[in-house]
Amino acid sequence: MKKVLVVEDSIYITRAIKIILEKEGISVLSTSDGSKVVEIVRNKGIDLVILDLMMPGVSGKDVFKMLKADQDTKNVPVLILSARIDYYLNDEELKTCDKFMTKPFDNKELVQEVKKLIG
C-alpha cells in the first residue's frame, strides 16, 4: 500500500485529500509542521509528498529544499499543491518539483496525478 504524506496547515483540506485518496486505496499521513517532514519521510517510508507552500513556521519552499538536500528523501516525488502560483513560477528550484497543482483543485485530477507519481 502506497503512503502519501500531506504537508498542509488547513485541516479541512488535509481531511478532504485523505477522503479522496484513501477511497483509492492510498494510505495518507499528514502534518502541518514543516520541520518534521524530512524525518517522517525518512522513517515512515513515504512514496509521495503533497506539499503546501504557505505554512506557518517552516515554509513549503524550505521543506522542499530540505527534502531535496537529504540523501534519504531527495528521490521521493513531491507534488506541490498551492494557491501561490506566483511562488512556483518565480522560483527555479520549486520548478524542479514533480508536479505543481493549484488550489482549488479537481478531485479526480488529483487522484490521477498522485497515481501517476506513485506508479
Binding site: S10, M54, R84, P104
Partner: peptide
C-alpha cells in the same frame, strides 16, 4: 493581491473539494 488571492483560494479549495466529494457520492 497575492495574499488576498491566497486567502480567497484556501476556503474556495475547501468549498470545491467537499462539494465534489458529495457530487461524486463519496
Amino acid at each position: 493581491l497575492s495574499n488576498i488571492s491566497h486567502e480567497l483560494r484556501t476556503p474556495l479549495t475547501s468549498i470545491r473539494t467537499y462539494n465534489q466529494l458529495i457530487y461524486d457520492q463519496v
